[in-house]
Design a protein around this nucleic acid. Structure first.
Length: 945
RNA sequence: GUCGGAGUGGCGGAAUUGGCAGACGCGCUAGACUAAGGAUCUAGUGCCCGUUAAGGGUGUGGGGGUUCAAGUCCCCCCUCCGACACCA
């Protein structure tokens, strides 16, 4: 079916020409071309680029360009018009660049593992795979209708066995590696083993390698791995016999489904040692073309702070280690505050309250132990929200002291919930004079405050955190913060009381999920309970097909068990791991959804390779920067919500793969662009209930629904706000090209913008006018002529080309469309048949934005081939400058007149022309000219007194 | 609270490096075509003064500054959106 529509199938009459570009015609054009593109593989991109194929007669080196969207989760709810904004943007850009001669790779995939499909399965009994594939098909259909120029043969879903086989393979690479911090890179675990056995490295548990048993050696290696097992709490719900995600647990600690009690229980879970890469993740941000805001978010998330770790001696044998960024304030330390769950607390509790213990320190308890227990109970009952809202400081005294190393001062030890176990060492040296939180704590408990930095005289605040000379600090007195820190650290290191340290907020990545619908780990356990890698040759480990979704009740004492534990046959497996065929227990957790999205860009490059996750030569071609940059995807477009986790995890995996020699560069995404969101008006009646937005009418600035007033707000499109507009609505009202054009015209791609259905007509009108300017609406025949365009029209065309080219390059599609509209308005105004040269340029400029109508026009005008592979028109520099130009003449900065001057005129000539202007001389009468400023080609300004 | 981003007509938004503010579109007004118009076409449209006009004033969140010239640069403040949220 390569034929374009020749007879419209809807009713025709005199007032509605047969070939008017309306929704019906648009739909026919669009579906016909979509079919033709599919049949002709118009968007296929081959891996060894056929250099000659698209190359111009002009010898030009073709450059690769890898354009990518953050792939979606295939939800069952279907798309609304907000979803495809970024996809249209990348499509336009990719098409434009292809027409500029680039070898463009653009495709799309699905991030298809995840909770909703599993939940759906639980409710309906339908297997997650069935449901997922159905959703993918539906979403694909909706996206296809948009005419996106993806190479569909490269599409992947993370749930494809052929894909997750390699996700498992990458996991094994990480599992089989350790971070050599001296070399600053990951290395194979075999190398670690050699170095440990050669005594070149000290073991983590302190015992010599040579004296270790086989099991001890395995344990030692496990301590170094980049993927390792650690204990972390999970939400165990015995009533449902499963572990729940945080969002499945209600605020009062019960399961959302069934309202069963949920218990926080520790469980062995996989962790990824992303913290080893903290510094590289931080440093390499500098080489990326990302917005500052995203870089800042990543920096904050990594949260590197430099300072010192200081040891405080206690009454018991143990020392309390604290991390501080302000070692210079050590002389001002007047209390020690530990996190309630700090491991030393129990050891430091004294049996009775010391004499003269203030009542406010005891929490009203008769003994420190009782006080601690009561306080811990209180804290554990507080929800996160309450902790955030209630910022007043609480805590209790342990009844014991510790010693400030630098001045041997005895200070009381407290526990308080403002100290977090998860950061630093979970202990804080309280310096109220220089830290507001400590100040608040000190005033609550009446603890001594010693200032160690002199505040300015007019300082009226509480804690003083700015710079200033040290006071009350012995050998530091007079030094400003930076120097004081240095001196104190020198003293600490010299005296053995502490050392320079760097701490990060970033934690290791909890990589286990207690779900069914995720990638199984390629890991088994033997009788030692230690993990063993499944050999690469045994991959993939497929999910068991048969699943029992019915909840089964267990008692509170039972061990937490992920859903895969129910696949009893699957849970054990026979492998030959070097000791002959034996039976092993499988890892029952699955990987998080992030896993599949950590490397999908690499699989796009070589999606059917079953020998390797990606062919190195192919990877190098698409991922390395020809101009010596860090390389990676050339343009990655997606929402800010992935600013931290996805982008950090993907960078981490990429760096590991880079260290191990599997990819050619250190970073996955060279340029990141955050698209904005489409918002839509939502309306609430006087009860606060959302009403169907589509039925709301506006009158004199107020809004009414069925005659009753409603209030307007803006929010995300969706069912809950009852304000969704679907692409299908737009297809039937205007066609896909109009929708594409409107979405690109609404504003710059990176900005949030409100959807306005009533405005879509404007974009439709543009296409209609373009069509009418080139096609006879009653016959469907082209009306263009082979005449030479007038000088004026030719110049306008070339100015438009230059402007559109520039705007497209900068992703400013709204501006590009505005310029195209101006050109088309001129064609409309002149009402003369359009010269073919101008018509073709117009069509080619439009084609990235509205490919279907562009193809149709291209063909109707008698051109050969698809617009997809044409070259973008080039502006003739000579036609961009007019011979003469009208410049504004300002007097004291206000435009008072205009004069025509030659474009090439020098300032002197312009000044003369300006001063000779009739209106200027009139206005200057009786005034003294102080200065004349001439900006050639721009304007002139006469300064008078 | 800290960090990041943004405030331009009734609305969405233009305005490379300081150089004609409001391109382009929606809406609105008037008109044309029409049996009809929620289709299409033409013209106008920041606000104020000016009967039309000519012209003038004013105008990019507020205040100050630099400059011949500021939406754009600097300082202070206000508002909105987003992220983090007791990170020692």
């Amino acid at each position: 079916m390569n034929r374009s529509p020749s007879t419209p199938d809807h009713e025709t009459d005199d007032s509605h020409p047969a070939f008017r570009y309306d929704a019906h015609l648009a739909e026919r054009i669009e579906t016909d071309w979509q079919e033709r593109w599919a049949n002709e593989n118009t968007y296929r991109v081959s891996n060894l680029p056929p250099v000659e194929e698209y190359r111009d007669s002009v010898a030009e080196k073709r450059q690769k360009l890898f354009v990518m969207d953050m792939f979606p989760y295939p939800s069952g709810a279907g798309l609304h018009v907000g979803h495809p904004l970024g996809y249209i943007g990348t499509d336009v850009f990719a098409r434009y660049k292809r027409m500029r001669g680039y070898d463009v790779l653009h495709t799309m995939g699905y991030d298809a593992f995840g909770l909703p499909a599993e939940e759906h399965a639980r409710q309906t009994g339908e297997h997650p795979r069935v449901n997922t594939e159905k959703n993918i098909a539906n979403m694909q259909r909706q996206l296809d209708r948009l005419g996106l120029g993806h190479d569909k043969e490269r599409s992947i879903a993370t749930t494809d066995v052929a894909y997750y086989r390699w996700t498992q393979w990458i996991f094994l690479q990480i599992f089989q590696s350790w971070y050599d911090s001296e070399a600053g890179m990951a290395k194979p675990i075999s190398e670690l083993e050699e170095r440990l056995s050669a005594g070149q490295l000290v073991t983590k548990n302190g015992h010599p390698w040579s004296g270790m048993t086989e099991v001890e050696r395995r344990e030692e290696l496990d301590r170094w791995r980049l993927a390792y097992l650690g204990e972390a709490p999970v939400n165990w719900c015995p009533g449902l016999g499963t572990v729940l995600a945080n969002e499945e647990v209600t605020a009062d600690g019960r399961s959302e489904r069934g309202n069963h009690p949920v218990f926080r229980r520790p469980m062995k879970q996989w962790m990824m040692r992303i913290t080893a890469y903290a510094d590289r993740l931080l440093e390499d941000l500098g080489s990326l073309d990302w917005t500052d805001s995203i870089k800042t978010m990543q920096r904050n998330w990594i949260g590197r702070s430099e300072g010192a770790e200081i040891a405080f001696e206690t009454a018991s044998d143990s020392v309390i280690k604290v991390f501080t960024t302000r070692p210079d304030t050590l002389f001002g330390t007047t209390a020690m505050v530990l996190a309630p769950e700090h491991p030393l607390v129990d050891e430091l509790i004294s049996d009775v309250w010391p004499e003269d213990t203030p009542a406010s320190w005891t929490g009203g308890a008769t003994s420190p132990r009782e006080a601690v227990e009561e306080y811990r109970r209180l804290v554990s009952e507080l929800s996160d929200l309450e902790r955030q809202e209630n910022r007043s400081k609480t805590g209790v005294y342990l009844g014991s002291h510790c010693v400030v190393p630098v001045n041997d001062k005895e200070i009381p030890v407290f526990i308080a919930d403002y100290v977090l176990m998860g950061y630093g060492t979970g202990a804080v040296m309280s310096v109220p004079g220089q830290d507001q939180r400590d100040w608040d704590f000190a005033t609550t408990f009446n603890i001594e405050i010693v200032r160690t930095v002199e505040p300015p005289e007019d300082f009226s605040g509480e804690a003083y955190v700015e710079d200033g000379p040290a006071i009350n600090s012995d050998f530091l007195n007079g030094l400003y913060i930076e120097e004081a820190k240095g001196s104190m650290i020198d003293w600490l290191e010299g005296s053995g009381n502490g050392e320079r340290t760097i701490t990060y907020k970033l934690r290791d990545w909890l990589f286990s999920r207690q779900r069914y619908w995720g990638e199984p780990f390629p890991i088994v356990f033997d009788e030692t309970g230690l993990a063993l890698a499944v050999p690469e040759s045994e991959l993939p480990i497929e999910l068991p097909e048969l699943m029992d979704w019915a909840p089964r009740s267990l008692d509170e004492e039972s061990e937490p068990e992920p859903p895969l534990g129910r696949a009893e046959e699957w849970a054990t497996a026979d492998y030959d791991l070097g000791e002959g065929q034996r039976s092993y227990r499988r890892e029952l957790n699955t990987m998080p959804q992030w896993a599949g999205s950590c490397w999908y860009y690499l699989r796009y490059l070589d999606p059917t390779n079953d020998e390797q996750f990606v062919d190195p030569a192919v990877e190098k071609y698409w991922m390395s920067s020809p101009d010596g940059g860090v390389g990676g995807v050339d343009l990655y477009v997606g929402g800010v919500e992935h600013a931290v986790l996805h982008l950090l995890y993907a960078r981490f995996w990429h760096k590991v793969l880079f260290d191990l020699g599997h990819v050619s560069g250190p970073e996955p995404f060279q340029r990141l662009y955050n698209q904005g969101y489409i918002q839509a008006a939502a309306y609430q009646d006087d009860r606060g209930i959302y009403v169907e937005a589509e039925k709301v009418v506006e009158e004199d600035g107020s809004f009414f629904y069925e005659g009753l007033p409603v209030s307007r707000s803006f929010g995300k499109m969706g069912k809950s706000l009852r304000n969704s507009v679907t692409p299908d609505d737009m297809y039937s009202a205007y066609g896909a090209d109009t929708l594409r054009l409107y979405e690109m015209f609404m504003g710059p791609l990176d900005q949030d913008r409100p959807w306005e259905t009533k405005s879509v007509i404007g974009s439709h009108r543009l296409l209609q006018r373009v069509w009418r300017n080139l096609i006879d609406e009653s016959t469907g025949m082209a009306t263009v002529v082979n005449d030479q365009p007038t000088e004026e029209l030719l110049r306008l065309t070339h100015r438009t080309i230059a402007a559109v080219d520039d705007a497209m390059e900068g992703l400013r599609f709204n501006s590009a469309i505005a310029r195209i509209t101006e050109l088309n308005n001129e064609l409309t105004r002149s009402a003369a048949p359009v010269p073919a040269e101008v018509a073709n340029s117009l069509i080619l400029m439009l084609s990235p934005l509205v490919p279907h109508i562009a193809e149709e026009l291209w063909q109707r005008l008698g051109n050969d081939g698809s617009v997809v592979h044409q070259r973008f028109p080039e502006a003739d520099e000579a036609l961009l400058v007019d011979e003469s130009i009208e410049i504004p003449v300002q007097i004291n900065g206000k435009v008072r007149s205009r004069v025509m001057v030659a474009t090439s005129a020098d300032p002197q000539t312009i000044e003369e022309a300006v001063l000779a202007d009739e209106r200027v001389t009139e206005l200057l009468a009786g005034k003294a000219i102080r200065k004349v400023i001439v900006i050639p080609g721009k304007m002139a300004n006469i300064v008078v007194s």
